[in-house]
């Protein structure tokens, strides 16, 4: 479909919903992905620009909860000192690996998480940071639920008139995060990537959130690996186990960047690396006392 499209910039949620609900024309929210499509090839009769709806705010509550407006640009994730210097630096790091700076100035977190293809780092970071997603329905009700659930239901997660309003990230106190990736060139879209967040509560009882992309058709958390890591001190044996579980449970899809066989194997490598990285950083920063080599 290449017919000319109209453009609307509603000032309210109601106005936006009314536009998106139209049956006579196919209206799409103007959401730019980090791997953007030609606007003429999106099949839209009209684009609805949501920029006046206040969805581009980034703020932190006093308890450390982060509210990330859905239309916050990816470049803002790179630049904002709240992220780049703090406990959410994983988001900033992830954003810096996505697209070019110009595209990052237009592409939004919303665009990054709904994209069926493209760089996975933002999604990985949100998964690993236990983000919740808030969606405003046509009746103005607000639904909030874990981002991982949203991803599981993609592409059917959003009704035509649903608006993602924000991502809510819990405080990341006493945590260490890292991201590892493999790509053809340093800034190319990752073939396989993994993000991990290590939480140390009271200096003991470590817990890991681990998400991987390229090992399945979509980025996913790895609960099996997280399970064996929970409460455990990292050991080479545990790392081997994590690596094995990752490879065994993987269901990758081949594309021109890498075959399923390669992705399966490399998923194990990046998971091993990202776990090692967070653990070593935790040791360096004193979050954990010592590493067992048993």
């Amino acid at each position: 479909m290449t017919q000319p499209f109209e453009y609307y910039r509603p000032c309210s949620h109601t106005e936006a919903v009314n536009l998106l609900a139209r049956e006579d024309v196919h209206c799409l929210p103007l959401i730019i992905h980090p791997k953007p499509a030609d606007p003429h090839r999106l099949g839209a009769d009209a684009f609805v620009d949501l920029s006046l709806l206040g969805l581009n705010e980034l703020q932190m509550d006093v308890d450390g909860t982060l509210h990330l407006g859905s239309l916050v640009t990816i470049q803002k994730l790179v630049d904002d000192p709240i992220l780049s210097n703090g406990e959410f630096s994983l988001l900033s790091q992830a954003a810096s690996l996505v697209a070019t700076p110009g595209i990052r100035n237009l592409a939004t977190v919303w665009g990054a998480v709904v994209a069926q293809e493209g760089p996975p780092e933002i999604t990985l970071a949100l998964l690993a940071l236990d983000a919740n997603i808030a969606i405003r329905k046509a009746d103005e009700s607000l639904q909030t639920f874990p981002f991982s659930q949203f991803l599981d239901r993609l592409p059917g997660s959003l009704a035509k008139t649903d608006l993602i309003t924000e991502f809510i990230l819990p405080p990341q106190k006493d945590s260490i995060s890292a991201l590892e990736r493999v790509a053809r060139t340093p800034r190319d879209e990752a073939i396989v990537a993994a993000a991990a967040v290590l939480y140390i509560e009271n200096g003991t009882s470590p817990r890991v959130n681990l998400a991987v992309a390229g090992a399945y058709s979509n980025p996913q958390r790895l609960p099996n690996v997280e399970g064996i890591m929970s409460g455990q001190t990292l050991t080479p044996k545990l790392l081997d186990q994590a690596c094995s579980i990752t490879m065994e449970s993987a269901g990758p899809v081949s594309d021109f960047r890498g075959s399923a066989k390669y992705r399966r194997s490399i998923a194990g490598v990046v998971v091993r690396r990202v776990l090692l990285k967070v653990w070593e950083q935790a040791l360096l920063t004193g979050l954990v006392a010592e590493r067992s080599d048993q």
């Binding site: 453009y7 103007l30 953007p36 499509a37 606007p39 620009d49 070019t100 110009g102 100035n105 237009l106």
Partner: peptide, 24 residues
């Protein structure tokens, strides 16, 4: 047509953006 080459870049409110991605 996908913003990736950046040759259509402009400064939009001081931010560099590829103008081919935006409806006029």
């Amino acid at each position: 047509e996908t913003g990736e080459c950046g040759s259509c870049s402009i400064l939009l409110d001081d931010r560099l953006v590829p103008s081919c991605l935006l409806p006029a």
